[in-house]
Design a protein around this nucleic acid. Structure first.
Length: 182
DNA sequence: ACGCGCGTTCTAA
DNA sequence: TTAGAACGCGCGT
């Protein structure tokens, strides 16, 4: 399965750090190009050596993860002092609690929409799904580790079962060593 | 397969 | 700005 990954970020010169805005996953190059065009994205200049170094570290982390290394990407990104653009995106208490809970699910583990609801004292299971859908940085925020209560795969990146997106979700879980999915 | 529940977003006033 | 309708990577029956 080939995938194409696009990182949208800003380099904060004064702080010398990268603020990661989005990590998007596409199934072919054309989709990447369409997305870049649609959102008027500028190609990375990499004219700053610190910026280039950070980027290559990020690239290595993601590639190693996709090749099966057991990496906690969230923690690794934190080590690199990468800023995640979450507070801008998630403004409500509810969505922040969902994201917070998601970040506690380690590689190799899974949870369910139901369990997240239990943890944050809510029965809004569908709304929890909607927060995941709005997740701008999959892989780092591990929405792929959330299944339906009955063990079904559930959706991924806004799409329901029997789509390329859910195949990717299965693939990621397999990569992480989790096997039992309906 | 259907109805339900609930946070978010869209829509029309 | 505000009420209410519509919408969802879901759940229970």
């Amino acid at each position: 399965m080939n995938i194409f990954i696009l990182l949208s970020y800003k380099y904060l010169k004064n702080k010398k750090k990268i603020k990661l805005e989005e990590l998007d996953i596409f199934k072919n190059e054309r989709e990447v190009l369409d997305y870049i065009k649609l959102n008027n994205l500028e190609p990375s200049s990499k004219n700053n050596s610190n910026e280039a170094a950070l980027l290559s570290e990020i690239e290595n982390l993601v590639l190693n993860y996709l090749q099966g290394q057991k990496l906690n990407l969230y923690k690794e990104f934190k080590k690199l002092n990468i800023e995640l653009d979450l507070n801008d995106k998630f403004k409500s208490d509810f969505s922040r609690k969902v994201i917070e809970t998601l970040l506690t699910i380690n590689l190799g583990e899974i949870t369910t929409y139901y369990d997240i609801g239990k943890k944050i004292n809510s029965k809004a299971f569908r709304a929890i799904g909607n927060v995941c859908k709005a997740n701008p940085i999959p892989l780092i925020i591990p929405c792929h580790r959330v299944l339906r209560k009955n063990g079904e795969i559930g959706g991924f990146m806004g799409k329901s079962d029997k789509t390329w997106e859910t195949k990717l979700k299965r693939r990621l879980l397999k990569l992480e060593g989790y096997k039992a999915i309906k």
